[in-house]
Design a protein around this nucleic acid. Structure first.
Length: 424
RNA sequence: GGAGAAAUGGCAGAGCGGUUGAAUGCACUGGUCUUGAAAACCAGCAUACCGAAAGGUAUCGGGGGUUCGAAUCCCUCUUUCUCCGCCA
């Protein structure tokens, strides 16, 4: 949610920037400004009425103390009209405030100035490509066949237990999953992140805070009896830890990491693109989150990118980094870099991480501020997060790229966690 | 699940119908003193909104109500603690 002050002061600028996201905001912004003006006028009137009635009440108190009952009764009579007025104004106020938030919530975050124009993933800009693509023999297999061949995972079990898109890992497959999670978490902790184990369900307020509600309700599993949502990413509970908090400037940056199961409904496409582990309803991910001083957030974004890049290098996976264009960047993000690994068995790039700076878009919803030491005022923090990393596609790429006639070669860094060099 | 108690500023903790946005202590910030520090003393120290400012309004777990007036009374929800039951 963009701060109302920004829209009030720089309406045209906001409209122009949102056009990069192919979002025509002119009508909404005009309405917001109208309602904002109306709201402020209303508040001035309301405050005046309340001030008068407060004054009267005090006078009545004094009169009673002095024993002037008759005068007190007269004053009491005067408050009746004021009360009616304030009730009316308060109702109007609530109504207009409701409309304002409903409108504000419709606006996406304004993209950073380096975000390229574009409509689809074709317009994303490759900013780095690193690592060597393996040369596989002609009989190389895609990961879904490798998973079956080596007895690592079953979609059929998941299908029986739950439904499609719920993979069941077992044996070395389960171990590989555990190894990757441990490896990613250890790296995050080494990089200064504090490890969290968050709840896997969140309430409405949390889902709203990070921007899943109201617009992306359909992508989350909803536990209706308790009105809770299964998290689509650990970003949601972890970032919400600082909801409604005023942090000390010296406490920034807050670096938090967490592993969780992630649940995504993602109704939609079928076929080759979603085969095997390419897209599933439940998967594991390690997420890194930072809550930072607004002047530092782009530095931190780079820092987080390098962290993710170092993980991929350590796993020896060829990857590329894309700066997402206006049409592909998410609603809440100001700047997003996607990481894709090359999956040789499918001969395609798979998205494994997404690192974003949300600037004040989330913190304005979350009401997460810090006290500026210089000015003594409260300011909104910037929030950032990134996957470090999502497991299924990493596993897909690892299996495909490291396949040999003898089995799947385990990357060096995972061997201590796996307790073996090869999956055969 | 049953019974009881509680929820106040960064923390501790008063207030239990009238000038209380809230005593007091601690913490914190600035100053005086000091060679420096400590101690002592003085001052400041919640958030949001409206307003050019002066100032005003709202907020004492959330929501609703009684009243001219609510931190204080009533209803309701939530959370925490104690006791009992059940259970990984």
């Amino acid at each position: 949610m963009l701060p109302i002050t920004l829209i009030r002061e720089k309406a045209e600028f906001v409209k122009e920037r949102l056009a990069i996201k192919n979002f025509d905001a002119s009508e909404i912004i005009d309405r917001i400004i109208e309602h904002d003006v109306e709201r402020r006028a209303l508040q001035t009137r309301l405050d005046g009425v309340l001030a008068e009635s407060n004054k009267l009440s005090k006078e009545i108190g004094m009169l009673y103390k002095e024993g002037k009952r008759d005068e007190a009764e007269i004053a009491k009579a005067k408050t009746v009209g004021l009360k009616e007025q304030s009730k009316l104004l308060e109702e109007k106020m609530k109504e207009i405030e409701g409309m304002l938030t409903d409108e504000l919530v419709l606006l996406p975050n304004i993209p950073h100035e380096c975000v390229p124009c574009g409509n689809s993933d074709k317009d994303n800009k490759v900013v780095r490509e690193d690592g060597e693509k393996p040369k596989l023999s002609d009989d190389a297999l895609p990961h879904w066949e490798l998973l079956e061949k080596y007895g690592l995972m079953s979609l059929e079990y998941g299908n029986k237990l739950t439904g499609s898109g719920f993979p069941v890992f077992y044996g070395k497959g389960a171990k590989l999953q555990r190894a990757l999670v441990a490896f990613f978490l250890d790296r995050a902790v080494e990089a200064g992140y504090t490890e969290y184990i968050p709840p896997l369900m969140v309430n409405k307020e949390s889902a709203f805070g990070t921007g899943q509600l109201p617009d992306k309700e359909g992508q989350m599993y909803h536990v209706t009896d308790d009105d809770l949502f299964l998290i689509p990413t650990a970003e949601v509970p972890i970032t919400n830890i600082v909801r409604d908090e005023i942090l000390k400037e010296e406490d920034l940056p807050l670096k938090m990491a967490g592993h969780s199961q992630c649940f995504r409904r993602e109704a939609g496409s079928y076929g080759k693109d979603v085969r095997g582990l390419n897209r599933v309803h439940q998967f594991e991910k390690v997420e890194i989150v930072q809550i930072v001083h607004p002047d530092k957030s782009y530095e931190v974004l780079d820092d987080m990118m390098e962290h993710v890049a170092s993980l991929l290098s350590a796993l020896d996976l060829p990857y590329r980094i894309l700066r997402l264009c206006g049409g592909d960047i998410t609603f809440a993000s100001a700047l997003t870099y996607d990481f894709e690994v090359f999956s040789a068995g499918q001969n395609r790039w798979l998205e494994v991480s997404s690192v974003s700076n949300f600037e004040v878009f989330q913190s304005n919803r979350l009401k997460t501020r810090f006290k500026d030491k210089q000015t003594g005022k409260t300011r909104l923090v910037h929030t950032l997060n990134g996957s470090a990393m999502a497991l299924p596609r990493i596993i897909a790429a690892l299996l495909e790229n490291n396949q040999t006639p003898e089995g799947i070669v385990v990357p060096d860094v995972l061997r201590p966690y796996m307790g073996c060099d090869i999956i055969s």
